[in-house]
């Protein structure tokens, strides 16, 4: 129970950040022609940002099933790497059916917070998923029903919350380790390349992130392999 509650507490900033992101998704889904319950159902069953946005755009044209599948696979391939990465931190009891059930909640942010732990138990991970799931669902509901009720200035400010959280995860560790800092710099550099270069920027953002992350991490693994003890001290 203690582990579960610790997870819930750790999930609060993610839930807050999700409120604003899913609020925007709700607004966009309704303006694309979905009803509020459809928007909420998509959020509750899928729980991903980039994939859902791409998804509703494809859904507005009937019959594009192959396109849907391909776009989701490319946007979401990063989750596979995260799942393998987290599989190394789980406690012995966290296996089998528990992984099949809780694997659903492997979002970027839930993964990021879990990956900072020394080890991840079933209860902690389940607790961690609670607030983000509530935030993602309620935000979608509010966005699809209310539309633009919050002043634009507040919405804009909330949009940075998720990124602030990312910075809070990466910056302290990158300060302690030069090799990590170098790896992070490579990833950011590649990401800028994909964002600004004419042909490369046509790539979906989800796939671009996967490519940047994998290339930078591969480079790091070969140039600065992490010793056993170091990888536990995080």
């Amino acid at each position: 129970m203690k582990q579960f509650l610790r997870g819930v507490r750790n999930g609060v900033p993610i839930g807050l950040g999700y409120l604003s992101v899913s609020f925007t998704f709700g607004i966009m889904a309704v303006s694309a022609g979905f009803s509020w319950w459809q928007a909420v159902l998509i959020s509750m069953t899928t729980l991903t940002s980039a994939g859902q946005l791409a998804g509703i755009n494809i859904m507005t044209v009937p019959g594009q099933y192959a396109e849907m599948l391909i776009s989701q696979l490319t946007i979401n391939i990063r989750y596979s790497f995260m799942s393998v990465s987290l599989s190394q931190l789980t406690t012995a009891e966290f296996k089998g059916i528990k992984r099949w059930l809780l694997g659903f909640f492997m979002t970027d942010e839930i993964f990021a917070v879990a990956a900072c732990q020394r080890e991840v138990s079933t209860k902690f991970f389940a607790g961690l998923a609670v607030m983000p799931y509530i935030g993602w669902t309620l935000g979608t509901l509010a966005g699809s029903l209310l539309g633009n009720v919050l002043p634009e200035s507040v919405m804009n400010a909330l949009c940075i919350a998720i990124y602030g959280m990312f910075v809070a995860i990466v910056a302290p560790d990158a300060k302690e380790s030069r090799s990590l800092l170098a790896v992070v710099a490579v990833s950011v550099g590649l990401s800028c390349l994909f964002y600004y270069t004419p042909i490369l920027k046509e790539l979906s953002s989800g796939l671009a992130i996967s490519v940047c992350a994998v290339v930078a991490a591969l480079l790091g693994a070969f140039l600065f392999p992490v010793k056993e003890e170091a990888s536990h001290e995080r």
């Binding site: 990063r78 790497f81 995260m82 393998v84 990465s85 190394q88 970027d108 993964f111 990021a112 990956a115 900072c116 990312f166 995860i169 990466v170 560790d173 990158a174 990590l180 790896v183 992070v184 490579v186 990833s187 950011v188 590649l190 990401s191 671009a208 992130i209 940047c212 992350a213 994998v214 930078a216 991490a217 591969l218 790091g220 693994a221 600065f224 392999p225 992490v226 990888s231 995080r234």
Partner: peptide, 13 residues
């Protein structure tokens, strides 16, 4: 090592 770096590279990208 690759799996250790992945969370950080995903988030920074």
């Amino acid at each position: 090592s690759f799996l250790y770096y992945i969370p950080y590279t995903v988030l920074s990208a």
